[in-house]
Simulated scan of single mutants.
Amino acid sequence: MPTALRLFRYVAIAEACSWAGLLIGMFFKYIADTGDLGVKIFGPVHGAMFVLYVAGVLAAARVERWSPGVIVLGLACSVPPFTSLWFERRMLARHREPVAA
């Protein structure tokens, strides 16, 4: 697996984990009303993971020669929670498929 694709995979997983942390923090801030420490911690972490995910999509797209539509889909998957995992799995499966001669 090329390095750019491997790094993209790690960043996509980390971005999803940061989403989970932020959503949990938001639950405690807005639903349980017990404070905003989780949002203060995971907000910046998720922001950084979001930026890294976008960079990872662009780097992997360059190495793997993804079409513009696939790139747009990958970037769009950075917005809804956990869709970065779906996109990462899809691209990894595509990479592992044997190329028809």
Rank of each mutant, 00 (worst) to 15 (best):
Met1Ile: 12
Pro2Thr: 13
Pro2Asp: 08
Pro2Leu: 15
Thr3Trp: 07
Ala4Thr: 08
Ala4Asn: 14
Leu5Thr: 11
Arg6Tyr: 03
Phe8Ala: 10
Phe8Trp: 14
Arg9Leu: 11
Arg9Thr: 15
Tyr10Val: 14
Tyr10Asp: 05
Val11Trp: 00
Val11Leu: 00
Ala14Thr: 01
Ala14Lys: 06
Glu15Asn: 10
Ala16Tyr: 03
Ala16Trp: 05
Ala16Leu: 09
Ala16Gln: 11
Cys17Leu: 13
Cys17Lys: 09
Cys17Met: 15
Ser18Trp: 04
Ser18Lys: 07
Trp19His: 11
Ala20Asp: 05
Gly21Met: 12
Leu22Trp: 08
Leu23Thr: 09
Ile24Glu: 00
Ile24Asn: 00
Gly25Ile: 01
Met26Glu: 02
Met26Cys: 11
Phe27Tyr: 00
Phe27Lys: 07
Phe27Gln: 01
Phe27Asn: 07
Lys29Leu: 03
Tyr30Leu: 14
Ile31Ser: 08
Ala32Pro: 00
Ala32Asn: 09
Ala32Leu: 09
Asp33Cys: 15
Thr34Leu: 09
Thr34His: 01
Leu37Met: 13
Val39Ile: 06
Lys40Ala: 01
Lys40Met: 08
Phe42His: 12
Phe42Lys: 11
Gly43Lys: 14
Gly43Ala: 09
Gly43Glu: 06
Gly43Pro: 00
Val45Glu: 11
Val45Ser: 14
Val45Thr: 15
Val45Pro: 10
Val45Arg: 12
His46Ile: 05
His46Cys: 12
His46Gly: 13
His46Val: 12
Ala48Asp: 04
Ala48Val: 14
Ala48Phe: 03
Met49Arg: 05
Met49Ser: 06
Phe50Tyr: 14
Val51Pro: 01
Val51Cys: 14
Leu52Asp: 07
Ala55Cys: 02
Gly56Ser: 12
Val57Arg: 13
Val57Phe: 07
Val57Glu: 03
Ala61Gly: 11
Ala61Ile: 03
Ala61Trp: 00
Glu64Trp: 03
Glu64Asp: 10
Trp66Cys: 15
Trp66Phe: 15
Ser67Trp: 03
Ser67Asp: 11
Ser67Val: 11
Pro68Gly: 04
Pro68His: 09
Pro68Phe: 02
Gly69Trp: 10
Val70His: 01
Val70Pro: 04
Val70Tyr: 01
Ile71Glu: 08
Ile71His: 02
Ile71Trp: 00
Val72His: 03
Val72Lys: 07
Val72Leu: 13
Leu73Arg: 04
Leu73Tyr: 00
Leu75Asp: 01
Ala76Gln: 02
Ser78Met: 02
Val79Thr: 02
Val79Ile: 13
Pro80Ser: 12
Phe82Pro: 02
Phe82Met: 02
Phe82Asn: 04
Thr83Met: 15
Thr83Asp: 06
Ser84Phe: 08
Leu85Lys: 00
Leu85Gln: 00
Trp86Glu: 01
Trp86His: 05
Phe87Lys: 08
Glu88Asn: 05
Glu88Arg: 15
Arg89Met: 02
Met91His: 00
Met91Gln: 15
Leu92Cys: 11
Leu92Met: 10
Ala93Leu: 12
Ala93Ile: 04
His95Ile: 01
Glu97Phe: 07
Glu97Leu: 14
Glu97Ser: 06
Pro98Val: 10
Val99Gln: 10
Ala100Lys: 15
